[in-house]
Design a binder for these strands. Sequence first.
DNA 1: CGAATCTTTGAACTGAGTCAATTAAAGTGG
DNA 2: CCACTTTAATTGACTCAGTTCAAAGATTCG
Lengths: 252, 252
Amino acid sequence: MTTTQTDGLQDGDAARCTGVDLLRWSGMPAEEATALRDVSFPVKWLSAGQPLVVQGAPLESLYLVRSGTLKVFQTERDGYEQVHAFALRGDVLGLDGLHDERHATAATALEPSSVAVLALREWQRATREHPLLARLQARAASLELARRGATLHNMAAVAAEVRLARFLLQLSARQALLEFPPRKLRLRMSRRDIASLLGVSHESVSRSLGILATEGLIRVNHREVDLVDERGLLARQSATRAERDAPRLMSH
Amino acid sequence: MTTTQTDGLQDGDAARCTGVDLLRWSGMPAEEATALRDVSFPVKWLSAGQPLVVQGAPLESLYLVRSGTLKVFQTERDGYEQVHAFALRGDVLGLDGLHDERHATAATALEPSSVAVLALREWQRATREHPLLARLQARAASLELARRGATLHNMAAVAAEVRLARFLLQLSARQALLEFPPRKLRLRMSRRDIASLLGVSHESVSRSLGILATEGLIRVNHREVDLVDERGLLARQSATRAERDAPRLMSH
DNA sequence: CGAATCTTTGAACTGAGTCAATTAAAGTGG
DNA sequence: CCACTTTAATTGACTCAGTTCAAAGATTCG
């Protein structure tokens, strides 16, 4: 909203996108969706560091990430930023606010990014008329739910390097899905953001990166991380928490 | 396990429920939903300890909890059970599996419980024909997403008692919504389940309960917990993680 | 009543948080 | 374009809370 400099448009890219685009970005087959060609939504561009939604704001629209990276977070009373997720192409922002019409989490761009603006009224009408769009939303919610599970899994690990290894592997997997090189990670977020997501101090993130690098599993250069030894990382990501009384499959 | 042959029905309660029931259980206004009287779904009864869905199983239906308590969890390769949530009345199970048609998480009853079985085909048809049901699903997903955020918040806390305090307060709040006495908690889950959800060892849960009890904030008797001093608990739940460089509100 | 699970408590060890100080990078403005 | 400021990242030292291992009660259930 308002004119934050380049605001709406940007040269070389459309100011609006169609329903077919939405399907494509969220990784759904879009062939037989000719009807969705006539549905369109505005595209909003964000510069690095620009907030898209603030916590607690009335939910006026959902957003589907078209490009870039956003961080999704809550700010505690004491000012601590709890990062919930990083949003990449295809992710839908604002779903966690549908139930009470307020944004439960804030979202800020970590690099130049663009999103489709799904104004609530129109979007809900669109989902009613186009089951594929309803499906898109359900799918997005489902994916996010599953990803939250993975995040929980991360934080459940005892050792900080284990959490970090899991995080890196998950990011790699997501990049692969988006057809980026899966073992060349360009971290768009600060160490502190990662630390928050993993539930450790940012110093621990630093140290853990060092440890994994020393072990030859990754190579770290500023915010560029190469996954050198993926097998090793996979091995490292085991061990959630000691559970000596683990597998008790009853013997028929 | 054991007598799975009682399966569907149980004396004294209907074998099916209507769309209006679904709305009611999930806390949505159900007055003007006369059309939903004709939509009905089977009810399934579960005994304590009975699994409802297993991890990885093909998603054949969603479930809406009608009564009781379920635990939602994943079992790691090493046999560790990572608890994701506890489901109470109104919660929908299986949403995290919609995106790939497999159950991402398992669900097991912690006490005698009942759920509405929303067989996928029929349910999806129903949501298409009845926007209120579509809304119910979106709302359920949204609520669960928001609740996952709270869980993240819990695990981000440094001290174990803080995590526990938050957990107890959240459970209390949910009970209040369901019109149960908010400061008389009957924990349906084991200490270990709680520990898993909070990301600590079960010994720590035991100790933390002791600490909070010693401080006079709660009273513990086996699995009955009374919230004696709610203010105190609220005070205890602060302090996520030191962040001396916290509030940086830019002043324009 | 006995077997299994759950829960509590104890003791020792260790990994991660906190505090602190230094270096590196990025952003700002003249 | 370069000083200057601010923020990000790394590294070290110290301390302590929580994990781990162990073992003893308590409760449940067959």
